[in-house]
Nucleic acid binder design. Structure first.
Lengths: 128, 128
DNA sequence: TTCGTATTTCGTCGATTGACGAAATAGGAG
DNA sequence: CTCCTATTTCGTCAATCGACGAAATACGAA
C-alpha cells in the first residue's frame, strides 16, 4: 500500500490464496474487482475513519488539526487513518502549507456505491 | 465480535479511545452510529467475502459447499467468513439439514447503503 | 535565523484477523 | 447401527491493525 491507486489492481490481500481468479463479467457488478472494492470497504470499516469523513463533510473548510481535535486521538494516529482514507481515494488532501485541507471525493466511492446498491436489490432465495 | 447484533451499540473498537462521543444528529446520516456502519463495512472488507456474496447472488439456490468449491479455501475458513457475514446481517442461512442454504438480506445493508450514498453526494470543499 | 505550528514517518506493542487442519456435531443413506 | 456428507468449533500461527510517543519535515512568523 504505497501508491494512490484509484482503479484496477489485483491479487495482494495479506496471505496469498487463490480467491480472485475468475472475475470476468461473472455475476453482479461486472468489471469491478473484489480487491479494490474490499479496499474501499476496509477504509470505511473503522469508526474513527467514519468520524473523520463526517467531520470533513460537516465543514466548509476542514484542515487536519480540526480532525485531530474532533477525534481525540493522537495526531500520528489520525494521520494514519487519513492515509488509509487517502489511499482508498475517499478523501483528498490539498496542501496549504503548513496545513492540509481535506475533502471527500464522491467519484472514488461511486463504484463501491454501485456495488452496495446491487446487494440491496437482492431477491429472496429459493430452498433446494 | 460474538453477538449477532443488528442495531445500536457503542464504544468497543479494540483499544478504548473516546471517539464516538458526539453522534446526536450531528452531520450526515443522522441516527446511524459509526460502530454499526463500520461493522457492515468490515464484513465487506475482504475479497473472499465479496466473492461469497456474489456466489450467493448468482445462484437460485446456494448451499455452503457450493461456496467452499467456488472460493477454493478450506471449509473451516469459508465457514468463518460466512459467520462474519451472518453476524453483520448481510447473509442469512436457512438450515436444510445437513446443509445450509444462503441468501443475501437486502434490508441489512440498506442503512449502510444510505450512508455510502450520502458520501457520494459530497460537494467540493473550499480552501482556507 | 530561530521558533512555532501542522503534519508525517518510524519503531514498538498488544489485539485482531485470516488461514489451516483436526475434531466435534448432526441428519440422511445404506 | 454405522458410515457419509455438510458444517461449525477449536487451537495454532504468521501477518496486519491500531494506538502511542518520539523524531523528522516544512513552511510562516517573529
Amino acid at each position: 500500500m504505497t501508491a494512490p491507486l484509484t482503479q484496477p489492481l489485483a491479487g495482494d490481500h495479506a496471505a496469498g490464496a487463490p480467491i480472485d481468479d475468475a472475475p470476468p463479467g461473472d455475476a453482479i457488478a461486472p468489471g469491478v474487482d473484489h480487491v479494490q472494492l474490499a479496499k474501499v470497504a476496509k477504509a470505511l470499516s473503522h469508526p474513527a475513519r467514519l468520524k473523520i469523513i463526517e467531520t470533513v463533510l460537516s465543514r466548509d473548510v476542514c484542515i487536519g488539526c480540526d480532525i485531530v481535535d474532533e477525534l481525540g486521538l493522537a495526531a500520528s494516529t489520525t494521520s494514519e487513518h487519513l492515509k488509509i482514507l487517502k489511499e482508498a481515494g475517499i478523501v483528498v488532501g490539498e496542501i496549504v502549507r503548513p496545513r492540509v485541507c481535506y475533502s471527500v471525493d464522491p467519484d472514488a466511492i461511486r463504484p463501491f456505491l454501485q456495488y452496495v446498491e446491487s446487494l440491496s436489490n437482492a431477491k429472496p432465495a429459493k430452498l433446494p
